[in-house]
Simulated assay, not measured.
Amino acid sequence: MSNASPTLGKLLRSLRDRKGWTLKQMSEHCGIPLSTLSKVEHDRLTLTYDKLLQLSRKLGLRMSELFAEEGEETAQTVTARRSVGDLDHAVRVETPNYDYFYLCTELRRKRMIPVITTIRAKSLEQFGELVRHAGEEYVYVLKGRVAVHTQFYDPMILEQGQSVYIDSNMGHAYLAGDGCEEAEVLGVMSSADEELMQSLLIIHEERKRAAEPVVAKPRRGVSGENKTARPRRKVG
């Protein structure tokens, strides 16, 4: 039996086989071009977080179900599960202030969500509102210096090799410390909520949208604003 973790292409192909769909039918259901799906299935292309979210929503699946292998048992006393995580097979979420690499995403119903995060935000103004979500979390500093802000405690500084364990329901934020352009941490979020990963990805999406600048669109039909003059026809 192979111990290698399945690729996104293999998981997507397995999902399509379970549905009994052709590539064209899959494309019609999820709104992703057929050529893109074909490249993913042949491991020549991966999908961004936005596309994965689109896929799960269009197909009516939780994000975790996209990474489930066929034949997985829904309840087992001893699962003997194993997953080898690496950045090449991680689900990557990029925002202006952070890069997140979610590891071992092919496992369903995980009680722990491992993620490597690159932190660039240096102030609470950059970060925005403190984050809250279900469960608890552990964060270990791999590189740099991290300022930890929480709802009920004074800010603290974590140096490389130090860590913190907190209640995730408490508002919290991780920032790059003074003199540090960016920091890298390993975080492990834990919760009895099977939708934890989906909740985290939704938080990322909402914060990413909130950080996007609003571009005013020109109004049509107003003098001097993108209006093209048309010659009048003479009536007589």
Results as ranks from 00 to 15, higher is better:
2 S>P: 11
2 S>Y: 00
2 S>M: 00
2 S>L: 01
6 P>E: 01
11 L>R: 13
13 R>M: 05
19 K>E: 08
20 G>V: 01
24 K>R: 09
32 I>M: 04
34 L>F: 06
34 L>W: 00
37 L>C: 13
39 K>R: 15
43 D>M: 14
44 R>F: 01
46 T>P: 00
48 T>R: 14
49 Y>M: 04
53 L>A: 13
55 L>G: 09
55 L>V: 07
57 R>A: 11
59 L>H: 13
61 L>C: 05
66 L>Q: 12
66 L>H: 12
66 L>R: 12
69 E>Q: 13
74 T>N: 03
75 A>V: 09
78 V>F: 11
79 T>A: 08
83 S>Q: 08
92 R>C: 04
100 Y>S: 03
102 Y>T: 04
104 C>I: 08
106 E>Q: 15
108 R>T: 11
112 M>R: 10
117 T>Q: 11
125 E>K: 14
130 L>F: 12
132 R>S: 15
134 A>M: 06
138 Y>L: 12
143 K>N: 07
145 R>Y: 01
151 Q>K: 10
155 P>F: 03
158 L>Q: 04
161 G>A: 12
166 I>S: 03
167 D>Y: 03
168 S>K: 05
170 M>Q: 13
170 M>D: 12
177 G>T: 06
177 G>D: 07
179 G>D: 01
182 E>L: 10
189 M>Q: 06
192 A>E: 02
193 D>R: 10
193 D>L: 08
197 M>W: 00
199 S>G: 03
200 L>G: 03
204 H>A: 05
207 R>V: 02
207 R>A: 02
208 K>N: 08
211 A>G: 05
216 A>P: 04
218 P>V: 05
233 R>L: 10
235 V>K: 15
